[in-house]
Design a protein around this nucleic acid. Structure first.
Lengths: 244, 244
DNA sequence: CGCCTTATTGAACCCCATCAATATCTGTGG
DNA sequence: CCACAGATATTGATGGGGTTCAATAAGGCG
């Protein structure tokens, strides 16, 4: 879990990584200081504005990345344009698909995003030497699989109102990597994506999303300022609606 | 990919494993002969009839398993009974959730199933020694994640007809582990599950599934004998319908 | 054959999509 | 600072795909 915890304050650790590792619990935590240093030589930190396409669907992958801030959306598109968002990556998630030449999804910055980008080859090579890396990746993959399956239940069986409530609950509990599962029953945050994105995530239309948000607002389950800022006075109530 | 290929015919390999490994490409392929032998001491092969619950939702996990034949369904249930199947495991898939005490899904035999069952502790211990095991598990997890995301598109954006066509295509291409992606454009197979299961997999009702199957039959896309046996004269056509 | 489970078919309804109009937000330039 | 324009969001009216309720038919197994 934290093999390198004592390394965090080691002055040999790249500054970029120190700032990251101190707060997050990403895959790089599996690396020893010297490995981290080696990887960081080919690493660049980058800020990209919302809407930037990081990897196209069926496109060859040359790089991996860690999300440092913001939200990355993974989506799939059908021939006739129908779109479905199949995953949201928050800090400190790893973005990439090892063992595969090309991506089966499109990765795009949903909000403004800060990324730590490194070449596929570098990490692939390091995976052979440092088994802890594969261990971390396996853990994250299994968590993502749990999330994906949880979302399949939402997509397949929930009503529009339950879907929107589920989405708001997801964001409320994931947007801020600092306060892990805060014990307060209250949350305030900015929606990291447009109504169109939310609709594509929920398998709904923009109009239905808008109507359900209005409905939740009028019912006092959420409060909204502008179109993006949401306050949830009672997260438990929101969760109850999300789960029927 | 096949580190132990030369071991397959080694007489030291447990008979159970020899029969399995020869045909399939499961996670045990990552083990050396002596490791395989050690694991096999705690391993039992078991046939279970359709409907057998293997792991309950939120139940503690004591064992893992490999699917040797048949289909295992993974499902989630809401408080009010709404159900969604979130994964289908075919031979030689691994069934289990490492790094977690309890399961977030219910695993149940969809058809009659043959399993190779081993204690969680045994494999967990072996994962520490044999890094190749985690490598295999990572590969399978990433593939399952790809599958889950593909299915999210189906659940969120496809019509009932496209969903049923997608399901039939999935079964046609996965039911028989022997003939990997057969090059013929024709397929014949038995549906491994009831209409109720299919509905729960597609996020539809039994009635809608039945109507869409009838529709595909009348259109000549599929032929049906009894309620289970399906023939697909033109898989490409089925796939075209599945993808809009 | 007869019983029970599973599947099909029919009719009415409803939730969400679609089409359409209006409102609000955002940022840019006068 | 305000006006304007394009993008984004809300709200309304209508319609359709899938659900629901109900009845009939077909398998499966003693």
């Amino acid at each position: 879990m934290s093999e390198s915890r004592q390394d965090i304050h080691n002055s040999d650790v790249p500054t970029l990584c120190r700032a990251c590792e101190a707060r997050h619990n990403g895959i790089c935590g599996a690396l020893r200081t010297d490995e981290l240093l080696r990887l960081s030589r080919h690493t660049t930190s980058r800020r990209v504005p919302a809407g930037t396409e990081l990897v196209g669907e069926a496109e060859n992958i040359e790089t991996y990345a860690n999300v440092l801030s913001g939200v990355v959306k993974l989506s799939k598109v059908m021939a006739d344009g129908r779109q479905q968002i199949v995953g949201l990556q928050f800090a400190p998630d790893f973005v990439g698909r090892p063992f595969q030449e090309s991506s089966k999804v499109c990765a795009e910055a949903a909000s403004d995003v800060t990324l730590c980008i490194f070449p596929k080859r570098s990490l692939d090579a390091m995976m052979v030497e440092a088994p802890g890396l594969e261990h971390r990746l396996l853990r994250q993959s299994l968590n993502e699989l749990d999330d994906a399956r949880e979302w399949m239940l939402t997509l397949g069986r929930k009503t529009a109102e339950e879907k929107v409530a589920s989405f708001l609950h997801l964001i409320a509990t994931h947007i801020d990597p600092e306060k892990q599962v805060a014990r307060t029953n209250r949350a305030a945050f900015d929606l990291p994506m447009t109504r169109a994105d939310i609709a594509d995530f929920l398998g709904l239309t923009i109009e239905t999303v808008s109507r359900q948000i209005t409905k939740l607002r009028k019912a006092g389950v959420i409060e909204i300022e502008g179109t993006r800022h949401v306050t949830v006075p009672d997260i438990a109530e929101l969760e109850a609606i999300a789960n029927g």
